[in-house]
Simulated assay, not measured.
Amino acid sequence: MPTARIAAGRTASGQGWQAYGTNGIYIDVDTSAAHFSGSPIYVTSVSGPGGNQWNLVGPSAVYDPTATKFRVYLQWRDASPLSPATAQQYGWFIQWIGYDNP
Rank of each mutant, 00 (worst) to 15 (best):
A8V: 06
K69W: 09
A33E: 06
I27N: 10
Y26C: 04
V29Y: 02
Q53W: 01
T68C: 03
G48R: 02
D30P: 00
D28A: 12
A19E: 08
L56M: 12
W17G: 01
G50M: 01
Y63A: 13
G98D: 11
S60F: 00
P65W: 09
Y99E: 10
R5S: 14
Q15G: 00
P65S: 06
I41A: 13
N23Y: 02
S47E: 10
W76N: 03
Q75H: 11
T66Y: 10
T11H: 03
R5P: 08
Q15E: 14
R77S: 10
L74R: 01
T86K: 06
I25K: 02
A87F: 01
V29H: 07
F70T: 00
G38F: 08
T66C: 09
S80C: 01
A67G: 05
P84M: 03
I27F: 09
L82H: 06
A7K: 09
Y63Q: 15
D100V: 07
A8G: 14
M1F: 12
A8E: 15
A8N: 13
I27P: 10
P102M: 07
S80M: 02
Y42C: 05
G50T: 05
G9F: 06
Y42V: 09
N55L: 06
G98P: 12
A67W: 04
P40E: 08
F93V: 00
F70Y: 14
W76M: 01
V43N: 14
Y63N: 13
R5M: 12
P59R: 03
A19K: 09
V62P: 06
T11R: 02
Y42K: 04
P102V: 14
M1K: 13
P81E: 04
N23Q: 09
T3V: 12
H35T: 10
T11Q: 03
A34I: 00
G98E: 13
A67D: 11
K69D: 14
T3Q: 13
W96H: 11
N23R: 05
S80Y: 01
V43C: 07
T86Y: 04
F36T: 10
S47L: 10
S60K: 15
G9C: 07
L56D: 01
A85Y: 06
A67L: 09
D28W: 01
N101C: 15
V72Q: 04
T86M: 04
D78L: 04
